[in-house]
Design a protein around this nucleic acid. Structure first.
Lengths: 189, 189
DNA sequence: CGGCGTAGTCTACAGCTGTAGACATCACTT
DNA sequence: AAGTGATGTCTACAGCTGTAGACTACGCCG
């Protein structure tokens, strides 16, 4: 039949995708520890035990969600000293949930393997570019500057997604970006 | 006997103190979720069930440790735009573990009550002073600036205690402080 | 000495977590 | 039409968590 063409109950790639999406959201909202596979399964409308089957376990799903959601972090790599660069980054980060990567990197080992994987992503996508910029500006402590800038940005992004600061949390990306780029740019030029 | 004078097995204030100390350390090292009352009891060399008895439960112990460890955050309140102010803050934070407060504030609700308590501390001790400074400098968006500065500093402090960034993590407070104050000061003057 | 309140110990339990493993259902090929 | 492999469902379990509750040891006061 052409009507029910290739419609299984569901395709495995679809289930995988739903799990990845739900996992990314929940890990962003609650963090790794407080998110249970049952939560993820429920939101994805997929049986939780599929997580073990498809990804190998909760930790592997987390890594997969990390990789999936980290792409917009710097794609293209952001220029953190320009308001436009920061604005683009903030909006990409807001659209998809890239905060798990930041949490994993910044937090003392939620899980050692997960942390190092997250750091690898963060290093190549944020610290590296900033370091080049600082080096181009003639600083000998370029790496330290780049790491400080990255850490500061991580703090700001995380604070925005948490509901901690009311002004910062409710301000739009467009309002925040100029100030953030002014802040970060101070160390890069 | 004068030898075993007022030495009970132990005094209750002593046990309380040991629990608070161990809790502060462990919450700093591992975060709230991953720290178990059994861990705390073992490090404090006090029975874990005493936590429930003395403090009411794990959450209350966390709050107590928070209050205890947050004092050095700004005591005296730090001038974040001066290298000395930042240096003093970094050293006080390093000496005792004030990072749980930052985590609690920045993270999406590890626990709603805990988060709001941590935020209250952070607001009065860091955002407030920075906001005054920004207002004195004539900015109309003083609160937003203060919150950005606080969030950035939180990210830097957390990154230093995690082992995420190798350069930032191994740099001394004296090396980091000038750069951080340069970074933060840009938004406050 | 005999009781009493404080401090500490130990056991137990109900709840939750991640996941293995047995079973069921479907689409498609031969 | 029957088989076959992929996909989804359900149950069960071992481990850990926070904590209540019963019990024990200790120092002090009369």
């Amino acid at each position: 039949m052409s009507e029910t063409t290739t419609v299984r109950k569901r395709s495995s790639v679809d289930s995988r995708e739903r799990l990845l999406k739900a996992a990314g959201e929940l890990f962003t909202e609650r963090g790794y520890e407080k998110t249970t596979v049952r939560d993820i399964g429920q939101r994805a409308d997929v049986d939780p035990t599929m997580i073990a089957r498809y990804f190998g376990g909760k930790a592997q799903l987390y890594l997969a969600a990390l990789r999936r959601d980290t792409a917009p972090l710097s794609d293209p790599p952001a220029d953190l000293s320009s308001a436009d660069g920061v604005l683009g980054l903030l909006e990409r980060v807001g659209a998809r949930g890239s905060t798990p990567t930041l949490y994993a990197a910044v937090r003392p080992h939620e899980n050692a393997e997960l942390q190092s994987a997250a750091m690898e992503l963060l290093l190549s996508r944020m610290v590296g570019p900033s370091e080049q910029k600082a080096r181009a500006a003639g600083y000998s402590d370029a790496q330290l500057r780049a790491e400080i800038v990255t850490a500061a940005l991580a703090g700001i992004v995380m604070s925005r997604t948490s509901n901690a600061f009311d002004t910062l949390g409710s301000a739009t990306s467009a309002e925040v970006a100029p100030l953030v780029s002014e802040l970060l740019g101070g160390l890069l030029r």
